[in-house]
């Protein structure tokens, strides 16, 4: 953008480095200490071991939490993509006040502080007599990630423009045929990208979940409970594994969302 002097460049790089140390530095502590023995609350730096991981493998609650997280993540992503597509198709099907209101409402659970989204659902479930369970968690997550998938699909549909669909209809295709042969193939890559991002968001969602969860806890809730109880070596092992998974998910998301040429051309 600008031509930067050498001094300016050095100063900026230094400031940037500080920020990245603050962002990533703290994460190194649990990762590194997960590979050492811990005695009396102190890391024994001369005793490398995998005992934290062994303790983790024996923690049955964790495995259940991982399973729950996966169930919730996949269900919420799947539901959000289907509902998001339907809503986007309706929104792009014309202009009306009702459509604008719908458009606005869909973003609310994502934009409002999570405590409000969570409390609304909590109170709603209580008043309708729905007990807190995995289903209520899936509902909360679906609403949270719906805004994102809906938004992405609307953007894609708008960039497609009406001519393709008009052509299909003029040639005598039924709405179902247009959907199957024109719209869905054009949406495919968008749906995959939105799906990965939705799953990542659901995987991490804590504040809404904390309010609507019953006894079937997801991984972040399990972690939260473990951390509040105090220090345990298996937390570090779990943190390391989750961070590893996140990084893999990020790499996959980047590969999918950015067209292959932009990565190669640089």
């Amino acid at each position: 953008m600008m031509h930067l002097s050498r001094v300016a460049l050095v100063a900026l790089s230094f400031a940037t480095m500080l920020v990245f140390i603050a962002l990533y530095g703290p994460l190194l502590i649990p990762i590194i200490s997960s590979f050492f023995n811990i005695a009396h609350g102190e890391v024994q730096w001369h005793e490398p071991s995998l005992s934290a991981y062994q303790a983790l493998a024996q923690n049955a609650g964790i495995l259940t939490a991982v399973r729950n997280t996966l169930i919730v993540g996949f269900s919420a992503t799947f539901l959000a993509l289907i509902i998001g597509t339907l809503l986007a198709l309706h929104y792009c099907g014309g202009t009306s006040l009702a459509r604008d209101l719908m458009h606005f409402t869909v973003f609310l659970p994502f934009l409002m502080p999570p405590i409000i989204t969570g409390l609304s659902l909590l109170i709603f479930f209580r008043e309708t007599g729905i007990p807190r369970s995995m289903l209520t968690v899936i509902t909360g997550h679906t609403l949270f990630v719906l805004a994102l998938s809906y938004r992405t699909i609307v953007t894609r549909l708008q960039s497609l423009g009406p001519s393709l669909i008009e052509a299909s209809t003029d040639l005598g295709a039924s709405p179902g045929q247009t959907l199957r042969f024109i719209i869905l193939p054009n949406l495919a890559s968008t749906l995959v990208g939105a799906g990965v991002l939705s799953f990542a968001l659901s995987f991490d969602e804590t504040m809404i979940t904390l309010l609507v969860t019953g006894t079937d806890n997801t991984l972040p809730i399990r972690l939260w409970a473990m951390m509040r109880l105090g220090f345990a070596p298996d937390i570090n092992a779990l943190v390391t594994i989750v961070l590893g998974l996140t990084v893999i998910l990020c790499v996959v998301a980047v590969r999918l969302l950015l067209p292959a040429q932009t990565i190669q051309s640089e």
Binding site: P26, L27, I29, P30, A200, F203, D204, T206, P220, L223, W224, M227, I235, V239, V242, L243, T246, L249, C250, A253
Partner: peptide
């Protein structure tokens, strides 16, 4: 994209 709760724990 990293877990919020993990970041708090690390800090």
């Amino acid at each position: 994209l990293m877990s919020y709760i993990i970041k708090i724990y690390a800090i």
